[in-house]
């Protein structure tokens, strides 16, 4: 029965694992997706994964600091999304293009 505990009892490790998976997905998204919007969303995903980590740790340590941290991160993430979207929109207006591969003028 011991092996089943992994699935029956939800521990901090599970949360952490989840957050790492989310983070990894975010990283993969940034690395692989071609659409700028999706890449931005992936970044947001990474941030949220970290949020989850914070909360988990805060809970585990029985502290509030981590939770407060999350508020900061959420605010920043919101601002970031706003700025990012603004840039993407501006770009789209100018170039009619959101493919990330399009932007390779600067190199070398």
């Amino acid at each position: 029965m011991k092996g089943l505990e992994l699935f029956t009892t939800v521990t901090y490790a599970h949360f952490l694992f989840l957050s790492f998976v989310l983070f990894a997905l975010g990283v993969l998204g940034v690395l692989l997706r071609r659409n700028l919007i999706v890449v931005m969303m992936s970044v947001e995903l990474m941030l949220n994964a970290v949020n989850l980590t914070f909360i988990t740790f805060a809970k585990a340590l029985n502290q509030l600091d981590g939770q407060i941290f999350v508020f900061f991160v959420m605010t920043i993430a919101a601002a970031e999304a706003a700025v990012g979207l603004a840039i993407v929109v501006a770009i789209f207006k100018r170039f009619r293009e959101v493919n990330i591969r399009f932007f390779q003028f600067l190199k070398g």
Partner: peptide, 10 residues
């Protein structure tokens, strides 16, 4: 410095 930002991330 290929110019592809995903490479940079990579």
């Amino acid at each position: 410095q290929s110019g592809n930002m995903q490479n940079y991330a990579f």
